[in-house]
């Protein structure tokens, strides 16, 4: 009860409500995306995000060079959150989708299918192995990769499919926002 009234108080301002709604509907957004979608000034947005995090209404997760925001009351994704965070990166997503459609594949086959260099694929595969999403197994002289929990990954991809269309729209907005600058 106390938490609920604390949340109500924290979200009393329209601006904070808007920020919170955006994060709740799009878990894992990074700062720049939140700023672009809300149209708020950087300083103002930083202040409100800091406030919401302090009131434990949103959670902040640092992932490499990005800081991503999640609603605390939103769907409890747990591991799926970090999976989603990784799958927002296009190359990693393509590799996962490719591996989901094949039982297993090696670096060369993935590189040929996706049109990326083997060294790039190798770098991405290492990331996915470290994240516990895929496993590698040696067979003779070759190393093969396989998705560990296909159902969970497929379910995340399905559930957040809308977000990937959002990326297309984001790219479109980016292009036209930068025209004339």
């Amino acid at each position: 009860m106390e938490d609920y009234s604390g949340k109500q108080e924290a979200l009393f301002l329209d601006t904070r409500q808007r920020i919170y709604n955006l994060i709740e509907q799009n878990p894992g957004l990074h700062f720049r995306e939140v700023q672009r979608r809300t149209g708020l000034a950087v300083g103002s947005l930083q202040y409100h995000l800091g406030y919401l995090a302090k009131k434990q209404i949103i959670r902040i997760e640092k992932n490499g060079k990005f800081t991503r925001y999640y609603s605390v009351a939103g769907p409890q994704l747990g591991e799926a959150q970090s999976t989603m965070s990784l799958l927002r990166q296009e190359s990693l997503r393509k590799i996962m989708i490719f591996l989901l459609t094949k039982k297993r594949a090696n670096n060369t086959r993935i590189a040929e299918a996706l049109g990326l260099s083997p060294s790039t694929i190798s770098w991405h595969l290492d990331k996915l192995v470290k994240a516990g999403l895929i496993e590698k197994k040696r067979k003779g002289r070759k190393i093969f990769y396989k998705v560990i929990n296909s159902e969970q990954v497929a379910s995340i991809l399905r559930e957040y499919k809308k977000s990937f269309f959002d990326e297309l729209v984001d790219n479109f907005v980016d292009v036209w926002d930068n025209v004339g600058k």
Binding site: R37, G39, F165, L168, V169, F172, V173, W176
Partner: peptide, 10 residues
């Protein structure tokens, strides 16, 4: 469709 979604968002 993408352009319309972009306008609806922003």
């Amino acid at each position: 469709a993408i352009a319309l979604a972009a306008y609806m968002r922003k």
